[in-house]
């Protein structure tokens, strides 16, 4: 069954992406509570794993990457990438200026931001599907985009072959913060989601 490659499957992935990112960005704006954030329209695309590094504007750029593996009703992987300048500005903002460098405390702050942003996404996804989604503790690294993606993809390559890539952009009063959020659902997991949401849709049309 190739429902995840059909047009409606891609549409569904986009919709999950849009709702998830809306919630994730709300969490981020709450974190940066003193700054007004303008959100650029999120770009949600579905790409194959092999294409992912090329989708990043600068695969050779150094970024802070947060990786979260999610279990529970279904399995999925979340990756949140922040260019270093963005990681530094967010860290400074959330710490009230106390932490400005990506040292041990700075990375810990980046990890917490990644944790909250990915949780915003996961919570929206759980609300949409009625699933219980339980993330494992996040991992954080600072490296080249392609190196971070490579090491994560090596782990998930066996089971999944597409990624929901959500490029998000935010502008704050002080500085431009941009970030990339990717969700990689396990193939079997996506089929479960697809069936569940279609059931919900037909229930609603049946009742209404």
């Amino acid at each position: 069954m190739n429902c995840y490659l059909s047009e409606s499957g891609v549409d569904l992935l986009r919709e999950i992406g849009n709702i998830g990112i809306g919630n994730a960005v709300s969490s981020l704006s709450q974190l940066l509570n003193d700054q007004r954030i303008n959100i650029r329209m999120p770009e949600v695309t579905v790409v194959s794993l092999g294409e992912l590094p090329d989708q990043m504007e600068s695969p050779e750029k150094v970024v802070a990457g947060i990786y979260v593996e999610v279990g529970g009703s279904i399995d999925l992987h979340m990756i949140f990438l922040l260019p270093l300048e963005s990681a530094r500005s967010i860290t400074a903002s959330v710490s009230g200026g106390l932490v400005r460098e990506l040292d041990e405390m700075g990375l810990s702050a980046v990890m917490e931001v990644g944790n909250i942003v990915t949780a915003g996404y996961i919570n929206a996804f759980a609300g949409l599907t009625g699933f219980k989604l339980i993330p494992k503790p996040p991992a954080v690294a600072v490296d080249l985009t392609e190196a971070i993606l490579g090491s994560i993809l090596a782990e998930v390559q066996a089971a999944e072959d597409f990624v929901i890539l959500i490029k998000t952009g935010f502008e704050t009063g002080e500085s431009d913060i941009e970030g990339f959020l990717c969700m990689i659902p396990a193939r079997d997991s996506f089929e479960i989601v697809y069936k569940k949401l279609l059931e919900g849709a037909s229930d609603e049309s049946g009742a209404g």
């Binding site: 909250i116 949780a119 915003g120 919570n123 759980a126 219980k132 993330p135």
Partner: peptide
């Protein structure tokens, strides 16, 4: 005190 505000959790 957690980011996981899902009802079930």
């Amino acid at each position: 005190c957690s980011a996981m505000g899902q009802k079930a959790l």
